[in-house]
Structure formats: C-alpha cells, structure tokens
Design a protein around this nucleic acid. Structure first.
Length: 462
DNA sequence: CTAGGGTTAG
C-alpha cells in the first residue's frame, strides 16, 4: 500500500514536470490534453499542476484565464494556496493592473491563505508602482520586523522602488546600511543602483558601483550594458554610445532588441532618422523577435519621418505577430497624426484607443493640445486643456508658447501663473516668451509683476 | 516576486 502511494506521488510529480515543460513554451492545449489523459489513467492533478497552469495562462492568455483556473481547481476539490495567488497578484502587477493585484491580495487573506514573503514583495512593488512609497515602506517594515524573513528580492524591490520614486539617494544609503549588516548584493541589486544613479546624473557613484560589480566577482550582463548605453545617450555622448553598442554586439549582449532600441530611440530624438533606420535594418537582419516596445520604437521612427503609411503597416504586423498594441503604441500614433497636422485622425485614434480599453493618457492629450495649437485651433486646445484631469509642464509649456506665438501674452501669463501655482516647472523659453511679449506689447508693469512671481515660485517649488 | 529599451512641449 505504502509502495503504491509512493508510486502515485512520483507519477503526479512526473505529470507536473511534463505539464511545466509544455506550459513553458506556451503549449497550453498540449498541457491540457496531457491532464485529460492523466485523469483517464486515474492520475489526479494536484495543487502544483494547477499552479503551473495559472502561471502559464496568466502569462500567455490573460489574468482572467489564470483566475478561471482557481475555480477549476476548486471544482476538482483542490484548494488554491499562496503560490496560486502569488502568480495572479504578480501577473496583475506586471500588466499594470495594480488595483487588481491589491484586490487579489485581500481575497487571498479573506480565504484564509497566509501571504508569504513573495506576496509581500509583490505588494511592496505594487505600492511603488502606484507612486505610494510610504505605503511600500510600511510593507517593507512589516516584512523586516514581522514574522517573515526578507530575501534578496525584498531588498532589490525596495531599493528599486525608492529609485523609481525619486529617492535614489535614500536607496543608496539603504544599500550601504544593508551591506554593513551583511547583505550580499546580487548583480540585480547593482544594476538597479547603476540605473538609478545614472538617471539622477551621479555618474561617479554609478561608475564606482560598476567597479564593485567586478570586485564582487560578478560579470556585468546585458542589462548592465544597456543601462550604461542609455546613460551615454542621455549625456549626449552619441559616438561613445554607438561604440558601446558595437562592443555589445561582438560580446553577444544583443540577443534581444533592448540595446538596438535604446540607440534607435536616441537617434530619433536628435533627428537622425537616417542613422536610426540603418540600425533598424541591422536589428531586422539579426532575426530577433520584435516585442511591442521594439515595434513602438519603429513606429515612432516612421512617424517622426512623416511616413504614416509605414507606421500603419507596422500596426498590422503587430497583430500578425500575435502581439497587442499598448498605450505607448496608441500614444505614438496619436502624436504622429498630430505632428502630421491630421487632428481628425488623431481624435479618431484617441477614441479608438478608449474603445480598446485604454484610458486617455496625459501624453496623448498633451500631443493633441500641441497639435491643435500648431494648426491654429488654440481655442479648442484650451477646451481640451480645461477638460484634462491631470496636466504637467508639457501641457503648460505647449500652450504658453503657442499663445505667445499669436500674441496673446496676457492669456499666456495667466496660464503660466496657474502652472507655477500647481507647483510645476515650465520651460525657461516659455517664460521668456511671455515676459518679453508682455514687455514689448506695452504691458511692462505686468511683465515686472510676473517676473517677481516667477522668482517666488522658484523658491517655493524647490 | 525584483534590474535594462518604447510616447509629448522648446
């Protein structure tokens, strides 16, 4: 009897290995048919089998599909465990459905399943993604001081979240403190810090980190390289960047599209479309499978080149490749249409984007506002501006510049002030345009007053 | 579970 039980367990284990190998390569139907065969042979799937399925369905089909497995396992008399929920929570978080992650977390607790460190790590990550570092910090403290043992991912998530929320200095200090207490950083930890430090321009410290990677016995990986590559372009060191890219190519670090897209994106930004196109051709020649971010880069390239038809062709390619457009794709198209002066097309695409389940985002609206201004429809642009729930310095700079362009300096001045009152910065060039406009159109007193307000705002907003 | 690439103003 005992022998039989052992055999049974072994067989389920084998079944799970088999299911896992199919799930890994997106052969879900195959996995399902194996399960059916197994059941026919009297071999019942267990919680691990279902968890493997949840993971795969979340990854390849969607969270709803993953979630439906929960019901299926319930019907089969198997209760979901913390791993089941961790998969779902992480999947929602990956898909930027943060509120869903939080709901799933609550659901798990309500069902009496105790979260583990992984659950808390993901929860922390969710709060950081929501821009709520205080909440994330609370979770971090709970992990450290509570019943759970933090793991490297806990620290990595915390350090990364701090960097992403504008607290890179704190992240760095935490890192050093943890090190003094015996934390051995992973390569990922270093990559997180190198990226954070590069972004705030602390290149000296970033270089020190890279040196520490070697001293710790790690070898920098493609991510380290791409981070440094991006940093080169950010510092406008294009020659150096392109050299690094070719070094990456010869060292085998360009097995995906990241480095290419970094370079292409940087070249587009400085208007070197021809060079960007050359790198696109290179990228295509490698046969690397394009993901949605790569497609977005290429679509943006065509848009900036005024080749909208080519951009539309790529939209079709995305579908043929079985990928889905995301908010970046749509925003890039909307901006491209605006830049081409096709406001109607842009508005149509905005509606289409909403139809596809994407909220209108700040960037898309900013593009629309700017596009409307450029074709002389400033009143409509103002209407859009007023309807916007969120605005940023792009919104204001664009409007202020264009109002100045048509000589409406007092209106521009009013807008500039409401921008400053909201605690946001505005381009220096936009400020100058308003000030000199007011001055030379006879509103010298107002110009003077505005100037002093700008000065005060500089103190307060800093 | 955690790290690199993709969108807007001048």
């Amino acid at each position: 009897m005992v022998r039989n039980r052992m055999l049974e367990r072994l067989s389920t284990k084998l079944l799970n290995v088999c299911i896992a190998s199919f799930c890994k390569v997106n052969k879900l139907e195959k996995a399902e048919s194996v399960i059916i065969d197994a059941i026919r042979l009297g071999l019942l799937p267990d919680v691990v089998t279902y968890n493997t399925l949840i993971n795969a369905y979340c990854r390849f089909v969607g969270i709803d599909a993953g979630y439906s497995i929960l019901h299926r396992m319930g019907e089969a008399g198997i209760n979901p465990d913390v791993v089941s929920y961790n998969s779902l929570i992480a999947a929602a978080s990956r898909n930027s459905q943060i509120s869903r992650s939080l709901d799933l977390f609550d659901e798990m607790i309500q069902r009496g399943i105790a979260p583990d460190v992984w659950s808390y790590n993901t929860l922390m990550h969710c709060f950081f993604k929501l821009g709520k570092p205080d909440e994330a910090n609370r979770v971090f403290r709970d992990i450290i001081l509570g019943d759970h043992t933090p793991c490297a991912a806990t620290f990595n998530t915390m350090i990364n979240g701090l960097c992403k929320n504008g607290y890179t200095e704190n992240a760095f200090m935490l890192f050093r403190k943890l090190q003094r207490h015996g934390f051995v950083p992973e390569l990922m930890t270093y990559n997180i810090l190198v990226n954070g430090l590069c972004k705030i321009g602390r290149l000296g410290t970033a270089k020190r980190m890279i040196k520490e990677i070697g001293e710790s016995g790690y070898v920098p990986n493609a991510i380290t390289y791409t981070t440094v590559l991006k940093c080169c372009f950010r510092k406008r060191k294009f020659e150096e960047g392109l050299e690094l890219l070719s070094e990456m190519k010869s060292e085998g670090y360009t097995y995906d599209g990241y480095a290419y897209c970094t370079a292409i994106g940087a070249l587009i930004k400085i208007g070197k479309i021809k060079e960007a196109t050359e790198y696109m051709v290179q990228l295509m020649k490698t046969g690397i499978k394009l993901d949605i971010a790569s497609y977005n880069t290429l679509i943006n390239m065509y848009c900036k080149d005024g080749k909208l038809e080519e951009a539309y062709k790529l939209l079709d390619e995305i579908e043929k490749d079985g990928l889905e457009c995301d908010k970046y794709t749509h925003t890039i198209m909307i901006d491209g249409l605006c830049k081409a002066g096709n406001i109607e097309g842009a508005i149509r695409h905005l509606k289409y984007m909403n139809l596809m389940g994407f909220d209108s985002n700040l960037v898309a609206f900013n593009s629309l506002v700017d596009g409307l201004c450029k074709v002389g429809q400033i009143d409509t642009a103002m209407k859009v501006y007023k309807s916007m729930e969120v605005r940023d310095s792009f919104t204001y700079s664009s409007l202020v510049h264009n109002l100045c362009r048509i000589g409406k300096y007092r209106k521009a001045s009013k807008l500039l002030l409401s921008c400053l009152r909201s605690g946001m910065n505005i381009l220096k060039s936009a400020q100058r345009a308003v000030l000199s406009g007011l001055h030379y159109s006879g509103f010298r007193g107002e110009a003077k007053k505005l100037k002093s307000k700008i000065r005060m705002a500089r103190i307060l907003n800093h």
